[in-house]
Design a protein around this nucleic acid. Sequence first.
DNA 1: AACGTGACGAGGA
DNA 2: ATCCTCGCCACGT
Length: 126
Amino acid sequence: MGEVSSGSFQRVWNVVAVIPAGCVVSYGQVAELAGLNGGARRVGGALAKAPDRGSLPWHRIIKADGKIAMPVGSAGRQEQIRRLEYEGVVVVNGRVDMQKFQWQPDMDELIWGPLGFPGTPEDSDL
DNA sequence: AACGTGACGAGGA
DNA sequence: ATCCTCGCCACGT
């Protein structure tokens, strides 16, 4: 079974994996969700060393001010922008409007995950 | 074991 | 808005 490791990098990857498409989160935000307070810089390192960057939505992580972190002109930066726009996230001048696209996870998502819990009835009414 | 590094963040100039 | 400085701290040398 793909048991979750308690390594800090693994924890970061676990958090990143549940970020919904069409949203962005800051490095610091991911750090907090991963239990690495003040560890925003560690998040970048974790993403760079992710074993499955093809499937991990690393592109949804940007700076707190909305700017793309990767160096201008780098292949990674272009790839990130391409993926974000593909999801409908508007990137203007290497920058994203955090007011519109920053993900704000609620408790349900943090506890049960983005897909909810099997068998849990949805209380769409009220 | 000390030292430098980094896909950050906040604050000041 | 841009640039610089400092704090942050796990990781690789």
